[in-house]
């Protein structure tokens, strides 16, 4: 993985801090979000605490519309019973992933993936082929369900060449599938605007109507401080398109840094390579 803090100037935060904060900023006003394991739990908690206190924060195991009290850390899993304090409703998976997600009531899903491809499809189960996996991952959990049914996908993927693929090794989670029109042809609702937040930059997708038209291809839309277009292109294995109005993603504010450090004081979510 490219710039670790070791060979970069000390900015007072790590790439993974910036990734979680940038993902938190992606939550839109009044969104209802299914938040998955790993960095999304931290990013979603940051969004809930400071950017979008009105958002509905939901996890797969049953907590619905969790509102953290002061001093409460980010949930340690999607099943953390700490969320029974301050939730509007705590039930089960048929409610959280069924009524809420499959029922079309999640405006967004925020999930970590092991791999992502040019058209935003995600892989969460293995490297290699299904018949001969080089390595199996923990599994898809609700990721596949979010890809099918959530209004849009906010994915978090560390920017590493093994994770960004022309085609993912196994498509667990529908993004734009083979391109324009493919979601509808497969029987899925349109989805978007999707976004992939990495440890170096932000990617968006070339479609304005959820995958019906446009190339649906991932493009570079925002760079983190200290990262160049060439840095990103060196990692992404296809001819990456770059937005004509490429932006520099603002570094974390002191409020964002304080909040993320308070929510994850032990840095359990911010271990590079852990997820």
């Amino acid at each position: 993985m490219a710039p670790a803090t070791g060979d970069a100037p000390d900015r007072g935060y790590d790439p993974i801090d910036m990734q979680c904060i940038a993902a938190a900023r992606e939550v839109a006003a009044n969104e209802t979000v299914i938040v998955g394991m790993g960095p999304p739990l931290l990013a979603g908690s940051v969004a809930k605490k400071i950017h979008r206190p009105e958002m509905a924060f939901v996890t797969e195991a049953g907590p619905i519309d969790w509102t953290p009290s002061d001093g409460v850390p980010a949930p340690n899993t999607i099943a953390d019973p700490a969320m029974t304090e301050g939730s509007a409703m705590v039930t089960d998976m048929l409610d959280a992933l069924g009524l809420f997600v499959m029922g079309g009531r999640a405006s967004a899903a925020m999930f970590q993936a092991a791999q992502i491809d040019r058209l935003g499809n995600l892989n969460t189960i293995l490297v290699g082929t299904y018949a001969n996996p080089v390595r199996r991952f923990p599994g898809t959990g609700g990721n596949a369900d979010g890809g099918a049914s959530a209004g849009r996908m906010i994915s978090t993927v560390p920017l590493e060449s093994r994770r960004f693929r022309e085609r993912v090794d196994f498509r667990t989670t529908a993004g734009y599938l083979e391109g324009p029109g493919a979601r509808e042809a497969a029987g899925l609702r349109p989805q978007g605007p999707n976004v992939c937040v990495t440890t170096m930059c932000i990617f968006r997708f070339d479609t304005t109507d959820g995958g019906r038209t446009g190339s649906c291809e991932m493009y570079l839309d925002g760079l983190f401080d200290g990262v160049s277009v060439e840095d990103v292109k060196a990692i992404v294995p296809w001819d990456l398109q770059v937005a004509s109005d490429l932006v520099l993603v603002p570094p974390p504010t002191s409020e964002e840094l304080e909040t993320i450090n308070e929510l994850d004081a032990e840095r359990v979510y911010r271990v590079p390579g852990r997820y």
Binding site: M102, A144, R171, T172, A174, R183, A186, G187, L188
Partner: peptide, 9 residues
Amino acid sequence: TNSFLGTDY
């Protein structure tokens, strides 16, 4: 269900 539509499953 609509889960798995369009996927390698």
